[in-house]
Simulated scan of single mutants.
Amino acid sequence: MSLKTLVTSPISGFALFVLFLALLLRFSITSQRLFTTEELALFNGTDPGLPILIGILGSVFDVTKGKSHYGPGGGYHHFAGRDASRAFFSGNFTGDGLTDSLRGLSSTEVKSVVDWRDFYLRSYKPVGKLVGRYYDSRGNPTKYLKGVEAKAARGAQLLEKQKIEEAKQPQCSSKWSQDEGGEVWCDVGYPRLVKRPIEIALTGKMSKRCACFEESQLGQPGLEVYEGCDYNANRCKV
């Protein structure tokens, strides 16, 4: 049978169509599949014949191209073969810190984890979903994931609101060096520490910011003079 006959034959054409659908289905399964926790653990970089995968908020990414970082001995190896979403914010890479739970995190903290997921979407190939906290057995988003997305959106709104508010009060200039340490100063006004709203504070270290206040504003409540710095100094060591 000639190639032309094979292609134009109704039966052969149907067979080719079925074959095409089978290949398409196979491609969709292999490129975007569902993983169990146990299956994902196999892709932790210890088997050179397998890709290295990580999960974040239930989305699974192939990070093999970054194997020097995600493979054994790499600085990010603790993320390989698991969903350790919380550690993307906390930096706790041991024991209970390597969990996908975001329980207890503020809206701005949750937003920072979502931002990491978006980074992987831009930088690495998504290969599937992890069945569990964020996706069900059919690959559909769970209520937990929808709640995380909503909380992150609130965090984005709060940060934008805070950005607008902080723009009203000039921020201190600053510098740091290993030899001299840190210094903050104001070209106009005096440096003071001022507390951020608790929902904005990402960590204890970021719960305050340095802003410049004019002399007439220094009597406002909540302004803190840097330790060891003169009340009227416009430069302070930190």
Rank of each mutant, 00 (worst) to 15 (best):
P126R: 07
L130P: 00
G91Y: 03
H69L: 15
S90W: 02
T46P: 00
L53F: 14
R86K: 09
D136T: 13
V60Q: 06
S107I: 08
K125T: 07
V131W: 12
N92K: 06
G49D: 08
G75W: 06
R117W: 07
L102T: 07
K65G: 01
R138Q: 15
E109T: 11
V60T: 10
G95F: 12
L105N: 10
S59H: 14
Y120M: 08
A80P: 00
S112T: 15
R82A: 11
I56F: 04
P141W: 07
L53N: 06
A87R: 00
K67Q: 11
F61V: 03
G95N: 05
N44D: 14
V110D: 11
Y70I: 08
G91W: 08
V131A: 09
T94C: 00
V63L: 09
K65N: 02
G55E: 13
T99D: 02
R117Y: 10
G66H: 01
G49L: 13
Y120R: 07
S101T: 10
L50S: 04
D47Q: 03
G58D: 03
P51D: 07
V60Y: 07
V127C: 13
Y124R: 13
F79N: 11
V63G: 09
W116L: 05
D47H: 10
S59P: 02
G91P: 11
G71C: 02
K125F: 08
L98K: 04
Y135T: 09
D100G: 06
T46W: 02
S106V: 04
Y124S: 12
S101C: 08
V127L: 07
I54W: 03
T99R: 00
